[in-house]
Design a protein around this nucleic acid. Sequence first.
RNA 1: GGCGGCAUCGCCAAGCGGUAAGGCAAGGGAUUGCAAAUCCCUCAUCUCCGGUUCAAAUCCGGAUGCCGCCUCCA
Length: 478
Amino acid sequence: MAIQLYNTLTKQKEPFVPLEPGKVRMYNCGPTVYNFAHVGNFRSFLLADLLRRYFDYRGFDVRQVMNITDVGHLLADADAGVDKVEEEARKQKKDPYAIVAFYLDAFMRDVEALNLRPAHHYPRATEHVPEMLALVEKLLKGGYAYVAKGAVYFDVSRFPAYGRLSGNSLEALKAGARIEINPDKKQPYDFALWKQDPLHLMQWDSPWGRGFPGWHIECSAMAMKYLGESIDVHTGGEDNIFPHHECEIAQSEAATGRPFVKYWVHTRHLLVEGEKMSKSVGNFYTIRDLVKMGYSGKAIRYLLLSTHYRQNANLTFDGLEAAKKTVDRINAFAQNLRDVSAEKPNPELMDTIKRARSQFVESLDDDLNVSAALAAFFELMTAVNRIEVGREGAAATLTFVDEVDQVFGILESAHVVLSDEVERLIRAREQARRDKDFARADAIRDQLKGMAIALEDVPGGVRWKKMSGPGGGTVSLR
RNA sequence: GGCGGCAUCGCCAAGCGGUAAGGCAAGGGAUUGCAAAUCCCUCAUCUCCGGUUCAAAUCCGGAUGCCGCCUCCA
């Protein structure tokens, strides 16, 4: 049974057949580093990560590239265009490259906080201008683009398949046009490959004068440089379908004469408390905002991942609370298994695990049906908790737990060191319990709870857990 | 105006023609010095109105509500 993915290009689920057997070449539309990426951005990056992890899990040799847009884009094709990076740079009176460096660093920290597997390359637009220029020249040579007043435009009329990805036709685009008239263009929907604007701070030399690249060209140039002329999977948010990805296809295929992307995978948008996220509504959150409020990266990750990627997701604080508890529960489950030492045969357990595993894989194979996959895992958890597992059974279960975590990435590290203070308190409470001084024992337990350490009395000792939060972990002590 | 998507328990969320998975929350019970963790039990007929079918949350038509794209947005 092969993996099935919904392909925006064909508007249906298709079996995933890579261009080269056993290998996956994947390109993800990454962040524009003129500001902090917000949770909505990360929903898209999380889908990319989920795909990456699942391909890894299923044994593919994956090559993943995520671009870093550090050039910014034009406001419009009009000369009054404002580059976002530059706007922010002017505001902060800093060098645009310093702004970019700052937010790129912030992005990489968020990537780490959310436990994303690092892509193999994070190419930056500013470092690939020569590749973009080469691509533009190729398009000009092929008659797919034209020069007008120092700018280069892609001639959409030369690429009949334009509109196939987004479901637009040129006629429909004309009919519903909200396009500003630019007299330099042959057609209003022709798009810029190279632009000029003396006001821009970031400029490069080109055969058509000093200027800067159009928005779409960077992805084509970088995808082809790192992954080749045809790639397997290209991801992005649904808002990128048109015009960005539509234009990427046109540029790339016009230049190479080959299909650019086999599977286009798009994430639907994330709402916050049922509303579109926006700064004016005040429901605009970055990852660090949520972490500051006490939600761990794993909890945020779980919540964002638990809604199917082609469904509008809703980020709520109720949801974050629930996610936090669920992640804690899964971690506790794993930890309890690590503690098992008794010898006890569990003849039926192996079968149960086997069934859970096949349901897990079958669900994810079906266009990443995360909810169904998780349901299989939760049912296994209950089944295991119901019986007394021995060492062997625990080990087999942990192997599966580890597989689940390879895909979901929500397990905390098993190694957390207690402070001397906490260890002292735990011992003091144990003594109080032995002395039947329960008032004192309970007081210490409350005190530890305030320090995010939860205690569980188990036969023969006490077990402690770090409650989830920034850097939370789960460990036990007997 | 053009194109597209969604509507399932208090909250989150599967299901894609054969009689409603799972998580969180809630209630009852077991266990516990008390807790916690864990286990057992309880907890929806799928926005509305028509239609197709032996059979519909699932297909068709309509209504209502919400969301996205139409050249800076994941």
